[in-house]
């Protein structure tokens, strides 16, 4: 268990204690202000080199990380390996060694294989490794930014600064995660984040999209989607992967929408103040109705906006490895 991300790798949110997660959220709050300035830059990582290594293309996540690194004044080496010569079967160790030879302080790694970030962290122990999504395993910064977004929304409602609330607003919070849990690294990171912070997490999905041995997860399984919606304070929807969905794990996307889509009709069952999240990109009309996505309860655009300060906080803590006091 890591009690502070300072100087540590971020590989798996399950490694982080409640204190460590709250620290990231608090530091991220302090960076929100930077992002509102005309000059959106602090010198925190001046002279440091952050490589972003995306073996699997994700423009939005890569841009979010690179923007975060640049706002911390780091030099960014962007390697879109997904489209280059690195193909299935190439040694992870060789690729990382080549990049390490350029002199880097941190690597932000996205990979189609579960565990790739953990493996890379063994090959380059002197480099900080930030997992930007590995296979079906983890997407830790997504879990952090989801928690950050929820905390910001709830604290605004109460009219208190988010950074003063610690994990209090998560105490007993009812979080429902819906959809393709089995194939979702976001779900694994979300469950880790919310449960560490003290929320109750329920999952709802067609049985074929629940992970094996889900009974051993620190969650409850909801069979009735309508009841689950009425119960929840926060609803996190997951993207249905079409290639996995149609005819393989569920009969069709239409049937998925019928059983587990957040239609306008179903949205009426939600509590009036319930919050809706989706990590994007959305399949409008599949996981959720377009009109639901645009309801005030939807935090989808705020999630995207939270990405930069949260990733700034992660990079700052992990790479600079300094205390809050030193930063001031």
């Amino acid at each position: 268990m890591i009690d502070s991300l300072r100087g540590q790798n971020l590989l798996d949110l399950g490694d982080l204690s409640r204190e460590a997660i709250v620290e990231v959220l608090d530091v991220a709050e302090s960076f929100v202000e930077v992002n509102r300035r005309t000059v959106k830059k602090v010198p925190a990582l001046k002279g440091r080199v952050v490589a972003s290594l995306f073996f699997e293309e994700s423009t939005r996540t890569r841009l979010s990380f690179e923007t975060a690194a640049k706002r911390l004044s780091a030099d960014v080496l962007s390697l879109a390996v997904a489209s280059s010569s690195v193909k299935k079967g190439e040694s992870l160790r060789d690729t990382i060694a080549t990049i390490d030879a350029l002199g880097i302080d941190a690597v932000v790694l996205r990979h189609r294989s579960s565990g790739a970030a953990r493996q890379v962290s063994r090959y380059v122990p002197h480099v900080r490794v930030i997992n930007a999504g590995d296979g079906l395993h983890q997407h830790p910064t997504q879990g952090l930014l989801d928690a950050f977004t929820v905390r910001a929304a709830l604290s605004e409602r109460r009219g208190v600064p988010a950074a003063s609330t610690g994990a209090d607003l998560f105490d007993g919070l009812r979080v429902l995660i819906v959809g393709d849990i089995m194939h979702s690294r976001v779900a694994r990171s979300d469950v880790d984040a919310y449960t560490a912070l003290g929320a109750q997490v329920h999952l709802c999905a067609p049985a074929t999209l629940l992970p094996t041995e889900v009974a051993t997860w620190p969650v409850s399984i909801e069979e009735d989607f309508d009841e689950a919606l009425a119960w929840a304070d926060v609803v996190g929807l997951l993207r249905l992967q079409h290639e996995r969905g149609s005819g393989v794990f569920v009969p069709s996307t239409a049937e998925y929408t019928l059983t587990h889509g957040l239609t306008l009709d179903r949205a009426r069952r939600l509590k009036p103040d319930a919050l809706i999240l989706h990590p994007g990109p959305m399949n409008r009309g599949v996981e959720l109705d377009s009109r639901v996505a645009d309801l005030p309860a939807s935090l989808v655009t705020r999630q995207v906006a939270s990405g930069v300060p949260v990733r700034m906080a992660v990079l700052f803590l992990s790479v600079a490895g300094t205390t809050k006091e030193e930063r001031r």
């Binding site: 399950g14 590995d134 395993h137 992970p211 094996t212 041995e213 889900v214 051993t216 997860w217």
Partner: peptide
């Protein structure tokens, strides 16, 4: 396939 594969996001061989 089991508790660990489920957590690690590795496809299991049951």
């Amino acid at each position: 396939e089991g508790v660990l594969s489920s957590r690690l996001g590795l496809v299991g061989r049951p």
